[in-house]
Amino acid sequence: MSADLLTGPADVRRGLDAVDYLVDDGLAMALFLALRLGRPLLLEGEPGVGKTAAAKALARVLDTTLIRLQCYEGLGVPEALYEWNHQRQLLAIRLAEARSERLGEADLFTAEFLLERPILRAVRESGPVPPVLLIDEIDRADDEFEALLFEFLGEAAITIPELGTFTAVRPPIVVLTSNRSRELHDALRRRCLYHWIDYPSAARAAEILRRTVPGADTALITAATAFIGRVRGLDLDKSPGLAETIDWVAALSALGVTELIPSQVVRTLGAIAKTPDDRDLITAALPAAPPVAPPERQS
C-alpha cells in the first residue's frame, strides 16, 4: 500500500489492525504525521511496549523494505553509514602493480569500493515505496553517534568526503526507538516528531493477546492481563512489557493452563520475571489457589 493512500490516522489504524498490530489514537496520529510530513519519528516507552513492532508493522502495511539498524555502544560510521571495501582496494592496488600501473587515492575511493550500511542503503533505495528505516534503541549508542545522524535526519542525506553528498530521491520513513536508558541530545529530538508509547490498557492488551496467542483460553487471557497490570505496580527490577506478557500467555496455553493457580503457573514465570528478586515478588503476588472442598461423607 502506498503511503499516499493513508489519508488520515483512521487509515493508519485500519492498516495496522489488518496486520494484527493494534494502536491507540495517539500512535496512529504520530505515524500518520510522520508519513505525511516526511519527518523521522522518535518512539519512546518502557521496554516491551511495541516500539520496534510498530516500525515492522508499518513496513508490512506499506509493503516495503524494512531496514534495521540495531544500536549499541561504540556504533559508528563503518557499521551504520558506510565503509570502504579495503580488501577490494588492496586487490586493485596489487593488480595495478602487476601491470606496472599506479593508482592514486582518487582511484581507490570511488563508488566501486563503497560498502553500504543501513543508513546509506536507506538513502539510496530506489524502490517504488520508500523503505522503513528502524534505528532501534538509539539510547544504547554513544552521544557521538547522535551527531552522525543530524544531517541524515534533517535532510535525508549523507556526505561522504571522498564522493560528495548522497540525497534520497524519496526520503526513507525513519522510526527511532528509545528505552530512555539515557537522555538524547536536544538537536536529535528537534529533528524528529515524538510519541511516548505507554503500556496498553487491560482491554487492548487482551485483544492483542487474543490475536497473537489465538489458542489461549479467553478466561486465562483476561486473568493474565489483569495480573500483569497489578505486577507492574510492584517494585520490580524490570516490569513485564507486552512482549513478555505474550510469551507468558503462550507458555501457559502450551501447557493447557486455564487458571492462574500458583502451583500451575510458577514454572512459567521465567517469561515475565527476569531476575531472582522479581521472581520472588511476582510469585508472592499470584492469586491464592481456591480452597479444596472436603470429600463428602459416606452415609
Rank of each mutant, 00 (worst) to 15 (best):
V77Q: 09
H86Y: 10
L236G: 12
D237T: 12
D63Y: 05
L69E: 07
D217A: 12
E296H: 06
P118R: 06
R13D: 02
I197T: 06
T283G: 08
R191F: 03
G104C: 05
E146Y: 06
A30R: 12
S100K: 15
P130N: 06
A226F: 05
R121C: 01
L234Q: 01
A216L: 13
A187V: 10
M1A: 14
E101P: 14
R60V: 03
L103T: 10
E151D: 08
H185Y: 08
A55S: 11
R36T: 01
T283Y: 01
G215R: 04
L90V: 05
A3T: 00
L69G: 13
R99D: 11
A96W: 03
A57D: 00
V213I: 07
L163I: 06
L62Y: 03
L153A: 13
I272W: 01
D278Y: 02
L115V: 13
L193W: 04
E125S: 15
D107Y: 07
R267V: 08
E46R: 06
R117Y: 05
L252P: 01
D20E: 04
D142G: 03
G233L: 13
A18P: 08
A202C: 11
P9I: 01
S299H: 03
A30C: 08
L242P: 14
F113S: 15
K51S: 05
L27S: 14
L69T: 05
L153F: 07
L236M: 10
L120T: 09
A57E: 01
V129R: 15
Y82W: 08
A250D: 12
L69D: 01
G154Q: 08
P291C: 11
T52P: 02
V257S: 12
T159R: 11
Y72F: 07
V174S: 08
A293C: 12
D20S: 14
T64P: 07
A271N: 13
A141C: 06
G164D: 06
T65G: 01
G154K: 10
P40H: 03
F166T: 10
L90R: 15
I173N: 07
A216G: 14
E137V: 07
Y72K: 15
L95E: 03
I246D: 10
F152H: 11
S253W: 00
L133M: 09
V19C: 08
A254M: 14
D277V: 00
E137F: 03
S126N: 04
A216Q: 04
P262D: 00
I135E: 00
A30T: 04
H86T: 09
W84I: 05
V19K: 07
P276E: 04
A293H: 01
I282K: 01
